[in-house]
Structures are given as structure tokens and as C-alpha cells.
């Protein structure tokens, strides 16, 4: 037998995990954000289950601060593959629970989306949620299992993680608990891009270079100018060629200056990049050394 390429091995592992979810759970869901990682998950699910239907719906927790390009991509994709999409809006949770909405110049609903996520899990009684998180993203993620059991409050307890051996996944849970499942745990940002290239996966246009009006933050990051920002006269606005390395909310995901037009340009850019994916683009992980660990303990992905 010829040796398997590393992308084949990563793909095989992910498909195996997705099929374990289908075999072990009553009511799984795939969390879909419109970002490249969850787009890869959908692609892998097609490979795992076609010609059958997905044994789970796609769930989008809509913060209301999405890039319009990402929403359009989402709707087009769902129509093309003919799978079920459930959308729940953070704004509705904020109203119903009388929560304090995000404030400030760049109002981030990142923390608020945990409420909506936990609500949608409860509403549909999901026992497993598949997500596109990767271990190379952040050091708390680097410690998380592929099957990560959460208690009734969605909390991750790093000290109580189940040991995980070989490719045997234990998804047995008590009522009220759920499992977060990360099929592409072992992929790096570069692996994802190489896979997208190999599989010719279509992506939202904002991953590629385009002209955009951006606000320059104090630390020099470029934030897309949108109706969600609270700007004042002193804010510096420029129009420049940018692209996005990750697709999160318009209010907390920074663009990077880039001329990368083709996927090969992007792959070269990442190989050369000196700053990590989250470091370059996320405002929310900069708060403290343990920001991600704390958010996960609170029920975040």
C-alpha cells in the first residue's frame, strides 16, 4: 500500500469522528458559523454520509453582527446541499432574558452568544454539538479532548476530562449533559487551507482580497466600518485592500492588509505569517492569558 498523505489521514480521522457522532447520539447538531473551519466540516459530512442525509441539522448562532457575505454563503450552501438549518439570534436572547447588550466602540456579542448557544441546545435537546475548533488555535484548546463532555450548564471542567484512548470515543452521558465534538482538532490553519485547495471548496468572498472601508484601532488593527460600530469624529477611517483570516463578527474580527487573490497566495501568506491566526484577528482573546479557558468553562465552544 502506498503511504497515505497527511491530508488523507486528517480527513479519514474527521470522517471517522463524524460517523461516531451519528452512531452514538440521538440528537446531534453541527454548529455552523460560515467560517472556513465549519465549511470544511460540512464538506467532511458530505463525504461521511452521502448519499444519505446528514444525521444532524446545521445550527447557526446569529450574533446579528455577521458579514453579509457570510450569511449569503450560508444560505446558498444550505440550499445547495438540501440540509436543515436552524438559526437562533443573540438579539432575541438579549431581549427575552433582559441581558445587557454589548457596548463600546466595537460592541462584541461574543460572550453573549454563549447564552443563545446554551438555549438552542436546551430547546432542541441536543446531546452532541459538532464544532470546527482546532487545537492549534489557542493553548486551552490544545488541552481539550475530541469528545469533550459538558455539564448541564455547558461548562468545561479541564480537571475532569475523560481520558481518550486510541480512536475509541466514549460519548455516553447523563441526561442534561452534552458533548462538544471537534473532528478537526488535529488540523492546523495551514492544513485547513491546503485541504480547501485540494478539495476545491468554495469560500465566502471575504477570505480573499477586496477593497474595504476600515477603522484603524488604537493598536493598529483594521476593523470593517459598519453600522454596528460606535464611532466618533476622531476615528481614523481608511479604504484599503484587505482580507479576513478568520470569519467572526464584524465588530471583533480584524482584517489583515493583503493582496492575496488566489488560494495559493493565501497559503504562502500564512506560511510567511509571523502572527497567529487568533492573535492577528481576534480582539476577544487578548483580554487575559486564560481568556479562552474561562470562556470554555462558562459554556463557550
Amino acid at each position: 500500500m502506498s503511504k497515505l498523505d497527511y491530508l488523507d489521514q486528517l480527513e479519514n480521522e474527521a470522517i471517522h469522528i463524524l460517523r461516531e457522532v451519528a452512531g452514538q447520539f440521538e440528537k446531534p447538531a453541527l454548529l455552523f458559523s460560515g467560517g472556513k473551519d465549519s465549511i470544511c466540516l460540512v464538506h467532511l459530512a458530505l463525504k461521511a454520509f452521502r448519499p444519505g442525509k446528514f444525521p444532524f441539522p446545521l445550527v447557526h448562532v446569529d450574533t446579528g453582527h455577521n458579514f453579509p457575505e457570510a450569511l449569503k454563503y450560508r444560505d446558498d450552501l444550505v440550499e445547495k446541499i438540501g440540509e436543515k438549518l436552524i438559526v437562533r439570534k443573540v438579539e432575541d436572547t438579549v431581549k427575552a432574558k433582559k441581558l445587557q447588550d454589548a457596548k463600546g466602540k466595537f460592541p462584541s456579542r461574543n460572550a453573549l452568544q454563549t447564552y443563545t448557544l446554551l438555549e438552542v441546545i436546551e430547546e432542541f435537546e441536543f446531546d452532541a454539538c459538532i464544532g470546527g475548533a482546532r487545537r492549534d488555535e489557542e493553548k486551552a484548546r490544545a488541552k481539550e479532548r475530541i469528545f469533550s463532555v459538558r455539564d448541564e450548564f455547558g461548562q468545561w471542567d479541564p480537571k475532569k476530562q475523560r481520558p481518550e484512548f486510541w480512536n475509541i470515543y466514549n460519548g455516553k452521558i447523563n441526561k442534561g449533559e452534552n458533548v462538544r465534538i471537534f473532528p478537526i482538532s488535529n488540523w492546523t490553519e495551514l492544513d485547513v487551507w491546503n485541504y480547501i485547495k485540494r478539495e476545491k471548496i468554495e469560500l465566502p468572498s471575504i477570505y480573499f482580497t477586496h477593497e474595504r472601508e476600515c477603522v484603524v484601532t488604537e493598536s493598529g488593527q483594521l476593523m470593517a466600518n459598519s453600522e454596528y460600530l460606535q464611532l466618533d469624529a476622531s476615528d481614523k477611517i481608511i479604504t484599503t485592500q484587505v482580507r479576513y483570516r478568520t470569519v467572526g463578527d464584524m465588530t471583533c474580527t480584524a482584517a489583515i492588509e493583503s493582496e492575496a487573490y488566489h488560494i495559493d497566495d493565501i497559503i504562502n501568506e500564512i506560511k510567511e505569517a509571523k502572527i497567529s491566526e487568533r492573535g492577528a484577528t481576534r480582539m476577544d482573546d487578548r483580554i487575559s492569558e486564560a481568556a479562552m479557558e474561562d470562556r470554555k468553562k462558562g459554556g463557550y465552544f
Binding site: R135, D136, A142, K143, P158, S185, T188
Partner: peptide
């Protein structure tokens, strides 16, 4: 706990 790290 185990930490997973990647390099190429």
C-alpha cells in the same frame, strides 16, 4: 494534561 502541538 496532554497538550497537542503541531509543526511541519
Amino acid at each position: 494534561d496532554v497538550a497537542y502541538k503541531y509543526f511541519t
